[in-house]
Structure formats: C-alpha cells, structure tokens
C-alpha cells in the first residue's frame, strides 16, 4: 500500500473521483495527526461508505477504533482493508498490532512472518513499515516473559 490507488466510486449522482477520495483522506489523516479524532472519524466513515474499495480509509477507521478501545471494530476494518489489498504490509502490521493487543498471538505471528518475508525479499521500501515490524517483532518475542 505504497500510495492510495482506487477506482472511481460508481455511486449514482455521487461519484467521487480518485483525486477527491485521496484528498479527503489526506485531510482525514491530517486530523488524526492533530488529534481531531471526531472530525477524522466523520471523514473516514464517509469514505468507507462512498468508496468502500479504498483501503487506506479502512485503516484510518481501524486506527480510530483502536485508540478508542474498540478492538473488534478495528479488526473488522483491518480485515476489510486486507480483503481489498491482500499484499498490504501496512494492513498486515495493523492486524499484528491489534491481534497482539487482544491476545491473538497466533494471528500476530502469522502476519509477522508474512511481513518479515516481504522485507527480506526487498519488497518493502517504506522505512516506517520496517521500523514498525521490528517493534512488533520485539513485542511478539517478549510476550509472556
């Protein structure tokens, strides 16, 4: 999920272009970064409705649900994102993080393995992905100690 790629949403009378969807998401992400979660939620939820095939907005929703403690909701959103983009290492790491939080070590281990493999194969250029992977790997390895 290096950059948001989506097809134009084909909702009658309410078509949103790829640019519009990406720009609205950008604003939502800005609000997440500045702590304006209620405003961000309106955008991410809106994008989930008008562009249900736009994976980044599902991850945005997953972030919001995670920070509010709605882990079941976060998992649903992440799984939706991964259905749209099964190769997304960002989505996989979101799944790892939330799975570890709810104690689903098996799922976390599985997806840590997938991301680790992708990194080893040189498929990951995003340094934040690599850093986050290392962080979650350490967390996984330290569990129960």
């Amino acid at each position: 999920m290096e950059s948001p790629q989506r097809r134009t949403s084909d909702t009658p009378r309410r078509k949103y272009s790829d640019d519009e969807i990406n720009d609205i998401y950008k604003l939502g992400k800005l609000w997440l970064e500045t702590g304006q979660h209620k405003r961000a939620e309106a955008l991410m939820s809106g994008l989930n409705e008008v562009a249900p095939d736009f994976a980044p907005a599902w991850l945005g929703s997953a972030f919001l649900r995670s920070v509010s403690g709605n882990y079941d909701g976060a998992l649903l959103a992440i799984q939706t994102a991964l259905r749209i983009e099964p190769e997304s290492t960002e989505g996989m790491l979101y799944l790892v993080a939330v799975s570890m939080t709810v104690g689903d070590v098996s799922t976390a281990g599985t997806y840590l393995g997938e991301v680790g493999e992708a990194i080893e194969q040189g498929k990951v250029a995003n340094q934040n992905v690599i850093r986050f992977y290392k962080m979650q790997l350490a967390r996984y390895q330290a569990r129960g100690k």
Binding site: S3, P4, D23, K29, E33, P56, Y94, A97, N128
Partner: peptide, 27 residues
Amino acid sequence: DSFSLSPLLALLPDGGNLYRLETLVSS
C-alpha cells in the same frame, strides 16, 4: 519524527493534496 510520536499513525498511507481539495468547494 512522526514515527516516534505515533508509530501506528505513521503507517497510514499519505494521501492526496489538501491544496487541490480547496479547489473543489463548488462541487
């Protein structure tokens, strides 16, 4: 470094262009 402040947030893809959004007011 945004990652240091919020790693989970730093994982989110960047998105589009806020300046371009400003041109879409009418639509």
